[in-house]
Design a protein around this nucleic acid. Structure first.
Lengths: 223, 223
DNA sequence: AATATAGATTAGACGTATCTAAATCATTGC
DNA sequence: GCAATGATTTAGATACGTCTAATCTATATT
């Protein structure tokens, strides 16, 4: 089964859209930055290949075979991001674009070797889970910093954005995966949250906070 | 200037064909395993982009701009091969295919980082020269083991083949880049050369020997 | 229940890269 | 100097992935 890079991208997009397994044409179009018409025609081909199930006007879901391929590409992506970060010294704001291209072109050999060198990591530099070879996805928090209460302490587990500016802003404040933050105040009027991080007081927009996933701090940490 | 992967492959092929700068349609077709007709139509496009100069029925040469791109791709290829070999533990018989795909998809950032990590190497795992960023090609020998005389001693500098079987055969005999060989006899009748390598007597076909480039041994070695 | 609207699909086109078959050119042998 | 041969180019077709414009469907509103 040799799929084009584009087909792989469609499958990955459908996987990542989530919506309890179903993706709409416009979801996919927005994500891949193509027209809805292009999505429809590609969906048709993927349906014929039994990689997705398409119900006209109702959305599309991955079949088992399609999901398997999507997970493999996602694994490639996140392993590559991790490798770029750990082995080549890339910043977490630089890894996405490079991985986006390379994910389609590495061999299984390459995948296995970098995974092994990295110690078979379960999370990438953004805290996103790396699917295992057999398609299992490590657990993740779905609590958003945006929903945290005043006086709470949280640990940053995942930043679900590939927006370089946002990532660099966090880096600038010294905030990364594993950072502990204390919520000083919620400023609903200006749509921001003030946090304390290593003695520094930082004001983060709700927009940013909704991309930051956290564990409530309870004295233990997940490695 | 955003070139398709295919266009890059054509430029690289023209560069590698050598023939004092000129490549014929059939040379390129053979190398890329496409029909001569496909080559003609691609050449036409590259000519319009001023990347090659095409004289109908007479062959094609790279322009300065085209050569620059071809050298960049070649640099990618050989750096990647070197990286796979040095950092990821690939054998020299495994690196070509992987590099062939990846060379089109790495960023300049990636190129720079792996080059630096490797100490800006000048030769890849097969001994082929890695073009520098400014397009210079390190020197190489053009003396073939196939032309060496009885009683001579030589040092293997380059193996100009990506044939896995051939490379594995050499590995099996412990022969690699830098190996010293003594020519025991030339066996013109059976088209082979017998060499001594670390006390072992090895019989190599002329076919293989014509892919092995050597320095005559004069007591000093090139690093 | 009828209609307005948002979303999805179809129709028809374009650009890229490939192919086969047919035609053309260049060279070499006689 | 011409014919034969081999290489090259042209012509016309196919497959892929994209687009815009037009049409159709589902659903929410009144």
């Amino acid at each position: 089964m040799n799929l084009s890079q584009n087909m792989q991208d469609y499958l990955k997009a459908i996987l990542l859209i989530g919506r309890d397994g179903t993706a709409s044409t416009s979801d996919i179009a927005a994500r891949l930055e193509v027209s809805p018409a292009s999505v429809t025609s590609m969906i048709k081909k993927l349906d014929e290949l039994k990689l997705v199930k398409h119900e006209s006007y109702r959305g599309v879901t991955l079949t088992h075979a399609g999901r398997k391929i999507a997970l493999e590409i996602l694994r490639h992506h996140r392993l590559i991001e991790t490798y770029l970060s750990e082995a080549l010294g890339y910043g977490w704001d630089q890894v996405h674009e490079e991985a986006e291209r390379l994910e389609h072109h590495i061999s299984e050999e390459f995948e296995d070797r970098i995974s092994k060198i990295l110690g078979d990591p379960q999370y990438d530099p953004h805290g996103d889970p790396i699917p295992s070879k057999d398609g299992r996805i490590p657990p993740t928090t779905s609590e958003r910093l945006a929903d945290a209460e005043r006086e709470e302490s949280v640990i940053v587990r995942r930043v679900s954005s590939h927006d370089n500016t946002m990532l660099r802003l966090l880096t600038h404040h010294g905030i990364g995966i594993g950072s502990t933050l204390r919520i000083v105040s919620r400023n609903e009027d200006v749509r921001s949250i003030t946090v304390r991080h290593q003695r520094k007081i930082i004001d983060l927009s709700i927009d940013i906070c909704s991309h930051i996933f956290v564990d409530r701090y309870v004295g233990t940490t997940r490695q």
